[in-house]
Design a protein around this nucleic acid. Structure first.
Lengths: 200, 200
DNA sequence: GATCAAATTTGACACTGTAAAGTTAATCTT
DNA sequence: AAGATTAACTTTACAGTGTCAAATTTGATC
């Protein structure tokens, strides 16, 4: 009696298909992601995936969900690294966001894409590592008195999400050497002003 | 002797194909955009587009280029509306950015997508209406002494681009009634702090 | 009017998603 | 334990897609 859920031929086909899909996605982008190729990589016939996902959109949704899990782990690690002040944690999460985008650009696009469900889709397991809750907790210390928490979240999220996508897309002069670049530092400088009093 | 470049059967097939592509894109998203459907809508055979574009990616690039032209006009109109202060112009361009995204979401995704070429691709005609130059000119008044102009541009662009994509994706509670909503106002409040002195 | 080149069509091929029917293997029932 | 049942997977088939090579049409040129 193994830990795998499926009993027949393949040990855990569903997971194997998701992993094959992620590999194809990161190797050749969304266009290379194909049900038949995933099936071939998993060693099953081309129609097998239909029994585990609702077509290609269904597989993409599952990949996106797995992507959010990886993303959440990435964020959690970025925050846990050493003792940090609230401000440092906010900076760390932004750096982690960009780094995730750089190393998993295909995954990030799928997560927020057409069939990606978005960040608020209910993930069955480990609610405490939910990506949105991480963002929320890191932003919380910078919510001013009487201010809506969503305000800070929207500011931080929009800034780092927009910068990451534009940076990945090469809009800031395609992938200049270090991350510590002027446009990123500009964004971080603005992040640093969030949660401070506006000058009169 | 007409103004059309093409001499044979169709008056201006290239433009007709691009327009058909934009229609398909906004009707059914990127998945509905197909060379054969574009050809059918333009009333030509399925292989005709190959003589005007480098395959589907080529058509998408052309659509993206047309999208940037529409985008630039949208921005220009937003700025020209009435006499505005520099600060009002900055707010207007951000509102225009979001409004364009709301009414042309498919086009916006293609413009910054895989085959979209991005905002810096050389557009042959009307350089003065280039989208990036518009952003640059609106941001210019808020560049502090000795500061890199790219700083302000990166801040403004990242903020409004990220917010627009997240808003379109329904991440802020899918399309709440008016644009003057709390998350958008939060972003605008941060925009209003750009170009002001940081408190000591 | 014959020639020529560009624009478009026709036909074909490989690849894709998808559905229906068939096959295998593990579980259940009695 | 033997047959029935069901889940996992395969096989087969079909419509739609991009793409290529070869006709074919069309407008212009000489």
């Amino acid at each position: 009696m193994s830990t795998a859920k499926n009993r027949h031929h393949h040990g855990d086909l569903k997971r194997a298909l998701i992993q094959a899909g992620i590999d194809l996605l990161e190797e050749g982008g969304l266009e290379a992601l194909t049900l038949r190729k995933c099936a071939a990589r998993a060693g099953v016939s081309h129609a097998a995936p239909a029994h585990h996902f609702a077509g290609l959109p269904g597989l993409i949704s599952a990949i996106a969900e797995e992507g959010f899990a990886i993303f959440s782990k990435h964020m959690t690690d970025a925050i846990k690294a050493g003792e940090q002040t609230d401000r440092e944690r906010l900076r760390s999460i932004c750096r982690g966001y960009l780094q995730f985008g750089l190393s998993h650009s295909g995954l990030l696009k799928v997560m927020f894409g057409e069939h990606g469900l978005g960040i608020h889709a209910p993930r069955n397991k480990r609610e405490e590592a939910d990506a949105y809750l991480i963002l929320r907790s890191v932003c919380a210390p910078f919510v001013l008195d009487g201010e809506d928490p969503h305000t800070v979240e929207a500011q931080v999220w929009s800034l780092i999400h927009g910068f990451t996508l534009l940076y990945i897309g090469g809009e800031f002069g395609c992938s200049t050497t270090p991350i510590e670049d002027s446009p990123f530092e500009a964004v971080m400088a603005l992040i640093d002003r969030i949660g401070t009093q506006t000058e009169t």
